[in-house]
Design a protein around this nucleic acid. Structure first.
Lengths: 194, 194
DNA sequence: ATAGAATCGGAACGATGGTTCCGATTGAGG
DNA sequence: CCTCAATCGGAACCATCGTTCCGATTCTAT
């Protein structure tokens, strides 16, 4: 029984057939777009149709809907981690921290999918993506610590707290109100208090 | 309280039969509990079973699942409005406002149902509960305005902004981190800035 | 006690959506 | 070209749920 799952993208690279590779890319592209906009609620059939393939093709590349979602969001979150690392030794630690905070919020605000990834399964990913959670917490922690030492951010806060604050801000944006104002409230609260 | 039409006929109250009244109360009780804990995701069958009745009985009292959810949440939100009105002429406007903010957050934090009611359909209820949205915004607006005039809350914020901030804080609590700390960040940001 | 109406319970229906299966199709080596 | 295994498409399967229906049951007025 040829039941080996090509879902493992980390193991031995098997050369996919040309059409298979093309379809896989197309599915990823479409799923990325739709998941970001609508979240996990998007039916697989919709993704398949929009990608011009059958559902069977989707399932040959990803064993489950959740796996597809995860494949995309993992990549997305890796970007966020990279961004944090890029700012890790900036000249102005305070500016770097707030810049990153803004980056995350903007990256997430109009994307129901990312929000779900960060809140539901994500950010503190439990199982196979546990590494990402650790990396995220660590890289964010570096930015935070430096900013605190520079006196730009209130002491006592941990990376987990900041993570929660970020999720809270994206929720605020989803709710309404003046986005700049509500963000300003949180940013002000992040500063050291008198 | 000129709202009506939860049940089928919006006619004069016809006396329900004894068992019918008992069942209706039991359904409301159970649904309240389960909706608060799990949100709209709870299947009607689960509510019926836990209430010891058939699904038919549930549907005889509430035309739709959403109607049942709404009946409960409407009541819950009415409580919140009443609380705001009770604080409307407190001696210390600043304390009243922050007290209310805290009240809402606590009322919502461990309740996926209320959160959904406030975010998804709610807070800015569209159709038949539009009145509630207006009442909420108005009663919250009074607290806010008085607190701003007393110099306890940053100027420029509107009731909608505060509403978004409340939703954001409940989201933070759902995420993790130190609840007191993240709340403190937002409360600090709400104060007038130097 | 009895009948008629109100109410009940839960099987059945229909819609949705994830996942599997398999005959048809197609790419690539010979 | 030709062949055959990889790949494809999408019908079919299954599980979940909201909602409806109707024969059975229970209440209440007489």
């Amino acid at each position: 029984m040829p039941s080996n799952a090509q879902t493992r993208e980390a193991e031995p690279d098997k050369p996919l057939r040309a059409d298979a590779r093309r379809n896989r890319a197309r599915v990823l592209e479409v799923a990325h777009e739709m998941f970001l906009a609508e979240g996990m609620a998007v039916p697989i059939d919709a993704i398949a149709e929009r990608a011009g393939v059958g559902v069977g093709t989707v399932y040959r590349h990803f064993p489950t809907k959740e796996a597809l979602f995860e494949a995309i969001m993992t990549h997305r979150i890796q970007d966020m981690i990279d961004e944090a690392r890029g700012l890790a030794d900036a000249d102005d630690p305070g500016a770097a921290f707030f810049s990153y905070f803004l980056y995350i919020v903007e990256r997430t605000e109009s994307s129901k999918g990312v929000h779900e990834a960060l809140v539901k399964s994500g950010f503190q990913f439990d199982e196979r993506v546990g590494d990402l959670a650790a990396e995220m917490r660590e890289s964010l922690g570096v930015l935070l610590r430096r900013a605190q030492e520079a006196g730009a951010v209130r002491a006592g806060l941990t990376a987990s707290d900041v993570k929660a604050l970020m999720a809270g801000v994206t929720e605020m944006r989803r709710m309404g109100g003046d986005h700049d104002l509500t963000l300003a409230v949180v940013l002000a609260g992040l500063r050291p208090q008198v």
